[in-house]
Design a protein around this nucleic acid. Sequence first.
DNA 1: AACATGACAAGTT
DNA 2: AAACTTGCCATGT
Length: 109
Amino acid sequence: MKKSNFFEDVYDVVRLIPKGKVTSYGAIANYLGITKSARIVGWAMRSSHNDATIPAHRVVNRNGFLTGKHNFIGTRMDKLLIDEGIQVKNNKIINFREVFWSPINELEL
DNA sequence: AACATGACAAGTT
DNA sequence: AAACTTGCCATGT
């Protein structure tokens, strides 16, 4: 089944997120040139819960909240993040600013 | 085929 | 500054 390029791009970027770092849907969308389509990134992640190669737990919303934690199966998002050294409290990343990784700044198109 | 919804974000009021 | 509205693409009903 052919998937839209958006999903492919999103997956690719998410896979590039270094361990111990997180990014936001907006950052990815912006990197792909679809700033207003951050929702699609979320959809992509939701559809990707089947793909273990995608660290979806490293993708949160711009507030640093683990909005998609509900969708995780088996392992908890918080646990995965904390295991990578990211401080998570009450579904929110405490040191979000410190662990934030933006593809635009780091990868540079 | 059409309508509604969804892991969001940015712009306006 | 807080709340509301619009934009975007894919998927499910």
